[in-house]
Design a protein around this nucleic acid. Structure first.
Lengths: 143, 143
DNA sequence: CTTCGTGCAAAGTGTTTGCAAGATT
DNA sequence: AATCTTGCAAACACTTTGCACGAAG
């Protein structure tokens, strides 16, 4: 929905500047799929060693305001960022092994429609995370 | 499902001790419904001023291991604790006003069954939080 | 050359750990 | 008396802020 190349335009439209850091950080989010600020930092460092973690935080916040990325809270700890406009999905987070799986947002549609109709609550489907135990851990459970 | 009075028994069964702090902290969780460690601390302080925040963290962790409480991550920041065994529910978290609403877990049942069948993923219904915008904020939206 | 962006260092939260004093059984 | 618990202080991890230098337009 938001083409990658639009970064320059979106920035210009607001009188903001296109910098190497901003390009690298957006690219890292696109490449990584789901990534914490720490992970984005790691990826960016490989290309440009000097980039500070502070810049990662500031830029992720900026990119989110610009509508280019969004973040979700999967389990505890740091938030994870991913491209906005990309095919939205619901996250399945395994509390045993931490694996993050994705399912099509349409699976949540019936429930979302019902909540919208009955309560006026607009579920933000892209931000949903369902916690539980994945098939692999289920089998290997040592209970 | 787990009667409040069972704290003493559950502790004794494991050779652990019943202390005023543990009783107060469990009571606070029961009373507050959804509460962060910070909020539990606040509630406990009203009754026993000297209780340290460290004890709150350690005790919440213990109570969770004992199966008396569980925690969920609602939006960012601290986790919120609530009684386990209580009627489980799904949380609706408004990202505008932060309001936490609850809906019956049965609404998630169809989806949960489907995920279990198709992927072997066991959704932990009590831990689920759906993010979005509540009816009130929806109306007052200034977009 | 003007204004925005970055790096660095320091300050802030929220949470965990080590240890000795205190409480429970 | 034995050992589990707590409080306190310090350590930690993650995130934010202030400021001067550097870069983009």
């Amino acid at each position: 929905m938001v083409p990658e190349s639009s970064l320059a335009e979106v920035l210009r439209a607001r009188g903001l500047r296109l910098t190497a850091q901003r390009q690298l950080i957006l690219q890292a989010v696109l490449d990584l799929g789901h990534a914490t600020p720490e992970q984005v930092h790691g990826a960016v460092r490989k290309v440009a060693a000097g980039v500070n973690i502070t810049t990662i935080y500031r830029t992720l916040e900026l990119l989110e305001r610009l509508g280019l990325v969004t973040h979700t809270h999967l389990s505890h700890g740091s938030p994870t960022y991913h491209a906005a406009g990309e095919h939205q999905h619901v996250h399945l987070v395994c509390r045993e092994c931490g694996a993050i799986d994705e399912i099509d947002r349409e699976l949540l549609r019936p429930l979302a429609d019902r909540l919208a109709g009955e309560r006026g609550f607009q579920v933000d489907i892209g931000h949903v995370a369902l916690f539980g135990v994945c098939g692999r851990c289920e089998d290997g459970e040592r209970k």
